[in-house]
Write a protein that binds this DNA or RNA. Structure first.
Lengths: 114, 114
DNA sequence: GCATATACCTCGCCTGTCAATGTATATATT
DNA sequence: AATATATACATTGACAGGCGAGGTATATGC
């Protein structure tokens, strides 16, 4: 992956929630989806991923249950709650604000500013 | 300030460098400039600001010197080095990439994704 | 005398990330 | 039968950036 995770830090939870918004999913699948969507530029480390799940569930934004796979490795599925949807939507708005703010603050340099 | 600093985390150094790109400045002034540019939405905490200066100087991206104020509090000025300018420009490119990536990863949810 | 603004600095804590490590099942290859 | 690879989950300990709280010092206004 080519993107520094320092820059993504703080958005991990939002990215995960985006992947749970329309359907239940599980860790491994979500991470694969992120890798594909980013065309290999980014992936979550497992410790980061599962740590985020723990926080999100602790906050009531997702709930988890074991899938009933009859074959292969077991999967822990996550389901977004109503509170989780609200959280996701407000996170998106925060991101829009932060994005514009950073753009503003960075463009102070390079051109004008004298 | 209304923006969560978690979302700005990782961009502190870039924001500071933007404020040093065209002219030398000092901590207090840079922070005021950030507050004004963000219309009060954001400010750096002093511990964060001075910690970032230390890192940037340690990496050779800025150099510092004491101003020769004859009155008022003393000021430590910072000057961006050539390496610092290169660092800033590459940080801006990183930000553009990260911005697009986060947009992509967040827009997975909310609409399509089934 | 006291508050406020300017201006700098540091210590210790908190939190998110990550490398390393471990568990377990299934399939393909040798 | 042994080995490698992919799927899938989980934890531990360390690290780094950010921050609250505290400290120092000068100048101005009330």
């Amino acid at each position: 992956m080519s993107i520094t995770s320092d820059l993504i830090r703080g958005h991990t939870e939002t990215i995960i929630m985006a992947n749970l918004y329309n359907r239940d999913s599980y860790g491994y699948e979500i991470n694969k989806a992120i890798q594909e969507a980013s065309e290999g530029q980014y992936e979550l480390k497992e410790a980061t991923l599962y740590g985020a799940f723990r926080r999100l569930e602790g906050n009531g934004y997702i709930i988890s249950y074991w899938g009933n796979e009859t074959t292969g490795a077991r999967r822990r599925y996550y389901h977004i709650t109503d509170e989780g949807k609200i959280f996701f939507e407000s996170s998106c708005k925060e991101w829009e604000k932060a994005k514009n703010l950073i753009d503003t603050l960075i463009k102070t340099g390079g051109k004008g500013n004298e």
